[in-house]
Design a protein around this nucleic acid. Sequence first.
DNA 1: CGTATACTCAATGTATACAATTTTTCTCGC
DNA 2: GCGAGAAAAATTGTATACATTGAGTATACG
Lengths: 234, 234
Amino acid sequence: MGKLFSKTYLALRQEILSGKLASGKSLIEQTLADRFEVSRTPIREAIRQLQREGLVESNRGGGLRVTVVTIADAIHLYDCRLGLEQVAAMGACENATAAQLEDLQDCLAQANLSDPTDPSMRSPNNVDELENRLRIDQSFHRLLADSSGNPQLADLLEQVFSKMALLRLTTTYQNPDVLEIWAEHEQIVAAIVQRDSQAAAIAVRNHLVASKMRVVQALQGLKTEASLQGIALF
Amino acid sequence: MGKLFSKTYLALRQEILSGKLASGKSLIEQTLADRFEVSRTPIREAIRQLQREGLVESNRGGGLRVTVVTIADAIHLYDCRLGLEQVAAMGACENATAAQLEDLQDCLAQANLSDPTDPSMRSPNNVDELENRLRIDQSFHRLLADSSGNPQLADLLEQVFSKMALLRLTTTYQNPDVLEIWAEHEQIVAAIVQRDSQAAAIAVRNHLVASKMRVVQALQGLKTEASLQGIALF
DNA sequence: CGTATACTCAATGTATACAATTTTTCTCGC
DNA sequence: GCGAGAAAAATTGTATACATTGAGTATACG
């Protein structure tokens, strides 16, 4: 029952999100078809879907490639989130169901579980632990988007998140402090629970402005580091 | 040099935006292929692109159709714009080039040209004139998005605009007063010219909140009107 | 008469062959 | 050696045939 294109879509997506297919890598239909042992047709369909999600973009001069996210893009994406997630938070104050509020709180609980005041956990060198936290963070923001009761909004945010996921591939491992976020998340949830949309919007704004700053700093750190080694990152 | 799929894409897009292919109409590859006298392959490519733009969506139960925009969707889309365009306006205050500022002002001038205090022009029964104003309005908002210097943002807004264009097919002709907007547009431009991002954000907010209200009222008018006639609009 | 099963048909999914186009590489003349 | 131009290869675009799936219909059986 599993359509071939959806299998290859999932596989490709996984490879992109895991970095196995690096940012900027150009996608050749025949090559992929050979690798996945299907014809070009399902590959094309899979690529189209990835294009819709923003994980694949067209190379200048024709051809497709895995989307490249530059520092400038990162900033721009954060600004998009800033606009959209404030609206989402206000929507959530009006429309979040009891179940959704619980889910949000569960998310916080899960995060706290792995984030005691133990300083060794604050900046874990453990990659699994980091990935786990990232997953929870993504869940949180996705949950927030869904709670807004605005599917159009959730859709747009999903696209932004996809591209940010690409970004994190290069960033977060280098910058565990990005995970100061949980106190900020708690403020957001608190405001939503109280159905205080002004406070929620402000909390989201604070969170995203701070996150943006953290990430940009991390990226610029990476950049100078890379340029010292003569690596062209962006 | 014109690839077939781009021709059929343009044709299909035109038909959708002009209403010739009505909202909700389901798209059958073979049928379209016959009509445009090409094979199914370019049709599929064209449809995928339209899907990316949000003009085509998947029907529950499989199959694709021209996107249906309900009243709820209209509200949701306005909320998305509210978030995104405020950010756009603030970005424009920082990044708009002299040329872009001029373009924005030209846009206003063009609108005023066809909007003297002549009351007969205020609610033109002239369809061409209405379409012209709509075009100018779209240009204005697109220009605003571009002036932000944030391509990601412009991209997201473009998607929103596409769906709104579908909406206007049913709405605006019935509701010429929607075009009270120009005074509001002037405030936006004034703020951007002065590089006052707070004022710009507020002006955008005012404009979109008002527009949203106008459109929702118009839609609800349509709805009751239609239900009186036993027509299921949404 | 109702229901379940098999059939039919319409639509999409997949493979493949071929065309058109673009890019690369090779060679020839300078 | 190097640039122009032609041959070759690689890549995407298009057509078409066939497979699969799913929805609807007819039919046979209880």
